[in-house]
């Protein structure tokens, strides 16, 4: 409706009938992502969508449904379960998979740790984030996936800003930033050698705010932890970390109950909450628009370790 009103105005101004048809920025982003999804389905034999229960992968599933409607999504949803997930995200995952009638494959980091005799991370907030890579690579091997679709965005982080939409990984899942294929126009080259696979990022060109605005426009349901709720947290280095069985309490740690919401949803041990009273999408969007700190800076504990943390993980096979 809005578009029509605006178009009429434009038509009068420019006196050109061709101006009547135009897409706003969210429609343009959606069209681009749908195009990418269809390229994946056509170019690969066994793609899989990496689904975490977070807002970015929820948006991915929504876009994939649109891309293949009225058919169903022609690939499975894969969740690499660290065992440190929020229950709300897991419940959402199961409900979503059932709703879209997709095959859900879950592989647990816990099992990889046992099978490969890996060392559990230690420390106050032991993060299995790094270990996910092992489980992911095993899962790719197990199902012979040739493309893994992820919800990474280029605005998130410096290493991501340089990655292609079709990102070729070698036998070991490694990303080589110096040997990326040029990606021109809207032409995606998904040809690979045996053993290689491609990570595809259909929402590369979306920003955090684009995602939120799209969720609102499309009325997409989210796990409840994205909205304000009461939670027991530990205040650590100015960040609020959820109290959970995976966190080691030390002397002097104060466990307090605060009204919080999550801006990004990862593991309980490496995602921080933000203090907030935003209970609706509009309120969340208002807060994010006014936010003075980036998504990763505010909520990702693991990226703070070194300046090049993401770059290192990607080179080793991370999403």
């Amino acid at each position: 409706m809005n578009r029509l009103i605006m178009s009429e105005h434009l038509t009068q101004k420019n006196n050109s009938p061709l101006r009547v048809r135009g897409l706003d920025y969210l429609e343009q982003l959606e069209a681009e992502s749908i195009h990418i999804f269809r390229e994946i389905a056509a170019q690969f034999e066994k793609p899989a969508l990496l689904f975490s229960g977070g807002k970015d992968s929820i948006t991915l599933v929504h876009l994939a449904r649109k891309a293949f409607a009225p058919g169903k999504i022609p690939f499975p949803l894969v969740h690499i379960d660290t065992g440190h997930n929020f229950q709300e995200a897991l419940d959402y995952r199961d409900a979503m998979a059932a709703k879209v009638n997709a095959t859900l494959i879950v592989r647990k980091v816990e099992d990889t740790i046992k099978a490969k005799n890996l060392t559990e991370p230690k420390g106050k907030f032991p993060s299995r984030n790094w270990l996910q890579t092992y489980t992911l690579l095993d899962t790719i091997e197990e199902f012979k996936f040739d493309a893994c679709i992820g919800g990474a965005r280029r605005d998130e982080e410096k290493a991501r800003a340089k990655e292609r939409i079709f990102s070729v990984r070698d036998d070991f899942g490694q990303w080589n930033p110096k040997l990326q294929r040029p990606e021109l126009w809207n032409i995606y080259n998904g040809r690979i050698n045996k053993g290689e696979n491609v990570r595809v990022f259909p929402i590369s060109n979306w920003t955090e705010l684009d995602i939120w605005n799209y969720i609102k426009k499309e009325n997409i349901a989210l796990p409840s932890i994205y909205f304000a709720h009461e939670r027991e947290v530990i205040v650590h280095d100015g960040q609020l970390v959820a109290m959970s069985p995976y966190v080691t309490l030390e002397e002097g740690d104060a466990v307090v109950t605060k009204q919080v919401r999550y801006r990004t949803v990862g593991d309980m041990t490496c995602t921080a909450a933000v203090e907030s009273a935003a209970a609706t999408l509009d309120e969340v969007i208002n807060e994010i628009t006014a936010a003075k700190i980036s998504e990763r800076g505010e909520t990702r504990i693991d990226d703070k370790v070194t300046e090049a943390a993401m770059e290192d993980r990607k080179k080793n096979g991370y999403f």
Partner: peptide
């Protein structure tokens, strides 16, 4: 706009980077 560690160390840019603002 400097992205990767390799770039920062060498003070060069390896590849096309995409930036977003609105």
């Amino acid at each position: 706009t400097d992205g990767l560690r390799a770039e920062r160390e060498q003070g060069i840019t390896i590849d096309v980077a995409y930036r977003y603002f609105s």
